[in-house]
């Protein structure tokens, strides 16, 4: 079994698929890493659903402003060209189909691209935030995840057993061992780790996969 990608490497790989000129919303947690690994020759604008376009990195010490936070309530900055707007407008952007790509995490993805990522079903206190709006409205939904749970169960399953975030919304799953597109023809493997046999990938996935004729090895530079 070849070495799976690290979280940073998955983020790097996602970044390759974000075209120049995209408006992108990154979910809280692992997706936030994507901002660190974008190709430098591309201009990409980050939306934060609390009301920011053109969100920049965390502030330098002394530059913090408590009224400028991201969706994860962390302090951030605004880049030149950035703008502020209220929540109803922010979700008009999201629901209205103006966001090119959102990147989210997942508990489960179904064969037809259903996503479950907001509750394990027995949380002490559930919270949904903007996830359901993002998957309903974004032009493309990228999922960043480990291929299997810590217990080894597949995250790509026939039917989600956890409460859904949205139906048929997932465009592409970027896991630590493969890149898989979801569409009307079912899941198609576009990339898999060099040296990972298709049978082994299939073994670790809960639904039948097809290997694209022009599949490529999944590679990323050493990033830690």
């Amino acid at each position: 079994m070849p070495e799976p990608l690290t979280r940073n490497q998955i983020a790097w790989r996602v970044g390759r698929d974000v075209p120049d000129g995209s408006f992108v919303n990154l979910g809280i947690g692992m997706p936030e890493l994507v901002a660190n690994f974008l190709p430098e020759d591309r201009e990409i604008v980050f939306q934060s659903e609390n009301g920011i376009l053109g969100m920049g990195p965390r502030p330098e010490p002394g530059e913090e402003d408590e009224e400028l936070v991201n969706a994860g309530k962390k302090l951030v900055t605004l880049l030149p060209g950035g703008s502020f707007f209220h929540h109803a407008d922010s979700f008009a952007m999201i629901r209205g189909g103006h966001i090119d790509i959102c990147v989210l995490g997942a508990f489960q993805i179904s064969e037809t691209g259903d996503l479950a990522n907001w509750t394990t079903g027995n949380d002490a206190l559930p919270g949904v935030g903007g996830a359901m709006d993002l998957v309903a409205g974004s032009k493309r939904v990228f999922i960043m995840t480990t291929h299997n749970t810590k217990g080894g169960d597949p995250k790509i399953v026939k039917e989600c057993t956890l409460p859904l975030t949205g139906k048929g919304c997932v465009s592409t799953v970027y896991s630590d061992i493969a890149v898989i597109d979801f569409g009307p023809d079912g899941p198609i493997v576009r990339e898999k780790l060099d040296g990972l046999e298709f049978d082994e990938l299939q073994e670790r996935t809960g639904v039948p996969l097809r290997l694209a004729n022009d599949w490529q090895p999944l590679e990323a530079p050493a990033l830690g």
Binding site: H87, F91, R95, V128, G129, A131
Partner: peptide, 13 residues
């Protein structure tokens, strides 16, 4: 507790 998706909350208001 009434849990409402964030954009739905904003738009309902």
């Amino acid at each position: 507790l009434e849990l409402v998706p964030q954009g739905t909350l904003a738009e309902r208001i």
